[in-house]
């Protein structure tokens, strides 16, 4: 009789605990094995996006302003060509992350979307359709979205994905805000 509670309660609890312990150990092992690889892959992707958004740059230098991280794009002789900003905005399916390259003359050099979670075939076209992102090249601060027949500082929205188009535009304009902050800082100091 005395053994009954032990057998009915303690044994199952113990077995469950052991399984949990074993599984956690296994996970910790896998984490140890893959951690460096994951970090390396993420860094490689970020570097590729950085390079693609500022093709002319030979190297990048990390920098910071008001807590926001950005990158200085340097030419092969070390002159400052412009900046790359890593911006996060809200889009249709959640966060949308963008790398925006802006030259020292205040014009967009290139834009790369790194994280997007929008509807495939509609919002996703922002990333997969190269013609959409190409529209931003050479634009100045204060880009606006139009549905067709864009001229001047406007871009054409993706058909059926106005929200995503606006989100990317918002990201570019956010990058320009940061850019003007840095510019002010540079001229003051």
């Amino acid at each position: 009789m005395k053994n009954k509670p032990f057998k009915e309660i303690l044994v199952p609890a113990l077995v469950l605990f052991l399984i949990g312990l074993l599984c956690t150990a296994l996970l910790a092992g896998t984490n140890l094995l893959t951690k460096e690889k994951i970090a390396a892959t993420e860094k490689k992707n970020a570097d590729e996006a950085k390079a693609a958004s500022f093709a002319a740059a030979a190297s990048f230098e990390d920098a910071e302003t008001d807590g926001a991280v950005y990158y200085k794009a340097l030419g092969s002789d070390g002159t400052l060509l412009g900046y790359v900003f890593d911006v996060t905005v809200k889009s249709y399916g959640g966060d949308l992350k963008c790398m925006v390259g802006i030259s020292t003359e205040g014009r967009v050099v290139g834009t790369q979307i790194t994280v997007i979670d929008d509807t495939p075939g509609l919002g996703m076209k922002a990333k997969t359709d190269p013609n959409f992102l190409a529209q931003y090249i050479d634009k100045e601060a204060g880009v606006t979205v139009k549905k067709g027949d864009a001229a001047g500082n406007e871009i054409n929205a993706i058909t059926g994905a106005t929200i995503t188009s606006k989100a990317v535009t918002q990201a570019v304009n956010d990058a320009f805000d940061l850019y003007s902050k840095i510019k002010d800082g540079d001229s003051n100091g």
Binding site: V15, L26, L27, T30, K37, I38, T41
Partner: peptide, 21 residues
């Protein structure tokens, strides 16, 4: 609960491998 622990562990392992490779 034991099944859930086992399944969740394998899922997390697969997730880490997919993230890496």
């Amino acid at each position: 609960p034991a099944y859930i622990v086992v399944i969740a562990s394998f899922v997390t392992m697969v997730q880490m491998l997919v993230k890496a490779f």
